[in-house]
């Protein structure tokens, strides 16, 4: 059958984009998690300048689109500061990381705030320092609460990685576009397979998110 032959032909070509898609996914996820914890904790800081400054970062990145941020960094950073961010891979990772880091910082902040007040009091009664209270009591519970949202946002990050094809990275979508432009009638199959590729990468993330949901239901004071 023609379709099977076509699939056999297309799949290896799309696979060439797997490396870029997955490396951008992993790097920007790690970067986003990092930003999430830094910004989330900074927004709980006692210092008003730190709070306002991180608040500004969070609102700007949540208030505009990822695609706008990506293009802005892609065109503007070299122009504005006269520096090259090195490569488009880095621009993609930084844009996605900063964008989802801003969203996730709200998850971090909200989870920490929602650990029951009695937990802090019990820790105080056991004479823990404020650092120990955070490290031993609040943080471990907050992290459990965060898991499902971190899972969900990681899937969002995966979807966001498709935008790096727009700044010239050879990811899965880029290779799909190349095949389509050489054979327009194959477009339905090509883009369907591209979607399947993304879905297969998403499956473990979906599974982890569900796992995270069940963990978060246990071991948290309500």
């Amino acid at each position: 059958m023609i379709t099977i032959n076509a699939i056999i032909e297309i799949v290896p070509q799309l696979s060439r984009g797997l490396g870029i898609t997955i490396s951008v996914l992993l790097a920007s996820a790690v970067f986003a998690y990092l930003m999430a914890f830094i910004a989330g904790l900074c927004r709980l800081s006692k210092n008003i300048f730190i709070r306002k400054f991180t608040g500004f970062y969070v609102e700007v990145f949540r208030g505009t689109s990822l695609i706008v941020q990506l293009f802005w960094l892609f065109y503007a950073v070299p122009m504005l500061f006269g520096i090259e961010l090195g490569s488009n891979w880095w621009i993609g990772v930084i844009a996605i990381g900063l964008n989802y880091g801003a969203y996730l910082s709200e998850v971090v902040r909200g989870s920490i705030l929602s650990v029951a007040k009695g937990q802090t009091e019990a820790a105080t009664a056991l004479n823990m320092s404020s650092f120990q209270r955070m490290r031993l009591i609040i943080f471990p519970q907050a992290v459990r609460m965060m898991l499902p949202e971190f899972g969900n946002y990681t899937i969002q990050i995966l979807k966001g990685t498709s935008l790096v094809s727009l700044i010239g990275m050879n990811d899965i979508l880029y290779h799909g576009d190349i095949i389509r432009s050489s054979n327009l009638s194959q477009a339905p199959l090509v883009y369907f397979l591209v979607l399947v590729f993304y879905f297969i990468i998403a499956l473990p993330l979906i599974w982890l998110t569900r796992k995270g949901e069940s963990i978060s239901k246990k071991g948290v004071a309500s």
């Binding site: 056991l126 004479n127 120990q132 519970q141 459990r144 948290v220 004071a221």
Partner: peptide
Amino acid sequence: RGDIGMVFQHFNLFPHMTILENCMTAPIHV
């Protein structure tokens, strides 16, 4: 504060620790 201990109306046990860990955490770390 080290000389004072308290038991709360709503227990306030640490839900992410076993009951043995609940007892051991403060003496070890504090």
